[in-house]
Design a binder for these strands. Structure first.
Lengths: 336, 336
DNA sequence: CTGAAAGCGCTTACAG
DNA sequence: CTGAAAGCGCTTACAG
């Protein structure tokens, strides 16, 4: 399987390589019909396929972006990635997706690998470390967009949920349902992570605004595997919460599993609101009240921003784009 | 941000480009300590990063594989991709993931794009068309592995579930639970798709082997959006099935939603077994009996096979690797 | 309207 | 032990 190159096409069509290249790049300004046809025939005859690698080397751009996702197991991530791919596809850009598995070392390796592959820009769901590395990239004007979490010290471009609002809506909804003893359960021990911090902040604020006590022991933060135990401890208190906000989809599943295992009834014994919409929300019994993120809009926005950065169509050098969470009221949050 | 190249390093270290290249490729056989150190210092000083694009052009290999997944919304796909990435990461290979969205045209575009980008090989979850294209690639000895579905006319390397066994196990389990009226619900109207065909075949066979009638109207095949209506029609029959096998995760969710909407009780009114494990299986009420695919093993196998192909370590030219499904018995299938 | 030449940033036989 | 030279497959100013 010998690869056919532009030189072979040129020879077959009896023109120069330059002319073939012009043809391929649709610069027909001065090309005679005859030449065009000869080239066209030669390409078909030889079944010629251009080599993007060579073109990229010369043009110093790859028309490829990299996406590094902290953890691909979240439905949120998958949906955002789809939106990014759709937008890039429409704009003739290619996407390389890498999953950092919440591991800052993997994240760092991927950044280096993608840069070595000369991707034109990066969309990152940051793990929360490698801040210096990100700062260096931003300072160098390397096109980069942060998704779901803020960039280093809030620098650069970020696309994320209004997390404070998300937990505010969730908690307020429970309060409106007559539930006053409310807890919040989050994962991710890393203290830098935006969503967790902001969601807890929103929780505290809305409780206070409603004149309700903010009890620190109602704020659970544990690794995924420890969630069940933590929730168990929480619900074993003499005066336990009557409503819980799950910090994300995987947390929600843990809580639901726990409740089923010990026959705690949702929503009668404990009302639930999950942040992040889940595929089974309407299938579950009870159906699950969730706070949905506009994943499609967010992914599209990040991709559009990045391509603008790459094409230098954007004069700003930083901005934070917040998206509105949406409450989807279902049964799990209604105790009345 | 001027890019620093191997020439800059050479100049700073006062050696030739060749020597720097040798250093980068760890060919130290004959290199003096002094030279090594000078190069090392120069690289650090200039913050030099090699350009893989240039290397790839010269070496005619990119150390990158492409993965084209028919539909990334299936949990199965996500898990297989993770396994592929893990294996490639360990072997210094990079992965470009593309989502064909069940659209043969997108699939074709992606194949061409990935080949233009000179990926060293491909793992494809085929949409069921583009058979001629695949056959051409196989004939050219281009490294390619088919996942989840057989290759064109069964040619080439495939990694997939023993689908017949999967539905056999599912149906036999229901029969063992005393349920004799069993239906099966699948999606994907495309008639070429291996899993659907094989799963229905297994269903028919095991019913027959148990001396049970095979009723064609108990075999539902509909697009995802039509599943609910089809199931409704099915369960409205005067003598409806008492147990259902869901063909995949998304089908299962549709069925569960339908049952909840019309207050059909699972498993009392209808017992359920889902093919494909789902994240919420143990959280659901009732917990869901599923047939799990060994996604991790399958992904790893495909990646290993592909790298062997690429490195020409494999003397066979085709093989089909079948993986065993595993029954995870939970509550949704028990009517007793 | 088309071609010769240089060059993108590497690697690799080969010479010394 | 190290360097000069050729070349991977393209693109692009420039000359004619």
């Amino acid at each position: 399987m010998k690869k056919v190159s532009i030189a072979d096409v040129a020879k077959t069509a009896k023109v120069s390589k330059s002319t073939v290249s012009q043809y391929l790049n649709k610069r027909f300004n001065y090309m005679s019909e005859d030449t065009k046809n000869r080239i066209k025939t030669a390409i078909e005859e030889l079944n010629y396929q251009p080599n993007y690698i060579a073109r990229s080397l010369k043009q110093k751009k790859t028309s490829t972006i990299g996406v590094i996702v902290a953890n691909i197991l979240h439905t949120f991530s998958t949906e955002v990635i789809r939106a990014i791919e759709d937008y890039c596809q429409l704009n003739q850009f290619h996407v390389i997706v890498c999953n950092a598995d919440d591991d800052p070392n993997k994240e760092k390796n991927y950044i280096e690998m993608l840069r070595a592959k000369q991707v034109d820009g990066l969309i990152v769901f940051p793990t929360g470390e490698n801040l210096d590395l990100y700062e260096k990239l931003i300072d160098k004007k390397y096109p980069i967009i942060f998704m779901d979490r803020l960039g280093p010290n809030g620098k650069g471009f970020s696309v994320l949920l209004d997390n404070e609002k998300a937990s505010t809506i969730a908690v307020q909804h429970l309060i409106d349902e007559g539930i006053h003893q409310i807890g919040i359960v989050t994962t991710s021990l890393n203290q830098h992570l935006t969503p967790r911090l902001e969601r807890v902040k929103g929780y505290r604020k809305v409780m206070r605004n409603n004149g309700l006590p903010v009890l620190d022991h109602f704020i659970i933060n544990a690794e995924l595997k420890e969630i069940k135990q933590s929730v168990k401890d929480l619900l074993s208190l003499s005066n336990p919460p009557k409503g819980l906000v799950a910090g994300n989809d995987l947390t929600l599943i843990e809580i639901l599993e726990f409740c089923r295992e010990v026959a705690i009834k949702v929503p009668q014994d404990i009302a639930l609101v999950g942040i992040d919409e889940v595929p089974f929300a309407s299938a579950f019994n009870p159906t699950i009240t969730t706070i949905a993120q506009p994943t499609f809009e967010m992914g599209t926005k990040a991709a559009r921003l990045l391509l603008q950065e790459i094409n230098k169509e954007n004069d700003q050098s930083e901005a934070v784009y917040r998206f509105d969470p949406k409450l989807i009221t279902r049964e799990s949050s209604k105790q009345k």
